[in-house]
Design a protein around this nucleic acid. Structure first.
Length: 111
DNA sequence: CATCTGACGACCG
DNA sequence: GCGGTCGCCAGAT
């Protein structure tokens, strides 16, 4: 596996939603590999359509350096994700990469 | 091959 | 709730 796998998942994050490093790592069957995911995100090339800003730390807390945190919060707010508080409400804006099953969405998700 | 590092996570005090 | 430690994985040296 490589970071390409991480990018693939990150790119699937719907607009207006966020996920955590841990979730991505779990989706890759790498529990505990959240760190590697974060490292991958740090090396994420800009301009490739990779919504890196939709990946946050556990609990929806921002885990990026200030210089990027400001931009990330702004981008998220632009997408409709309130980041004013200490953390993002994952219960509402969280998105599980492993649960991405829009196949038969009989029960539509609330937002 | 041995070590260190890092946009992490779970635990513990 | 906050800060420190340990364990985790992939890459770079």
């Amino acid at each position: 596996m490589s970071w390409d796998t991480v990018y693939r998942i990150v790119k699937r994050i719907p607009r207006g939603r966020v996920t955590t490093y841990g979730e991505v790592a779990r989706a890759l069957r790498l529990p505990g590999g959240a760190r590697a995911v974060g490292y991958a995100m740090a090396a994420t090339p800009r301009g490739r359509g990779i919504p890196w800003h939709r990946v946050v730390g556990a609990g929806g807390r921002i885990r990026v350096p200030e210089r990027y945190a400001a931009l990330q919060r702004k981008l998220l707010q632009t997408e409709g994700v309130p980041t004013d508080g200490i953390a993002i409400d994952l219960k509402r804006y969280g998105w599980s990469p492993a649960t991405k099953r829009p196949a038969k969405r009989k029960t539509r998700q609330k937002r």
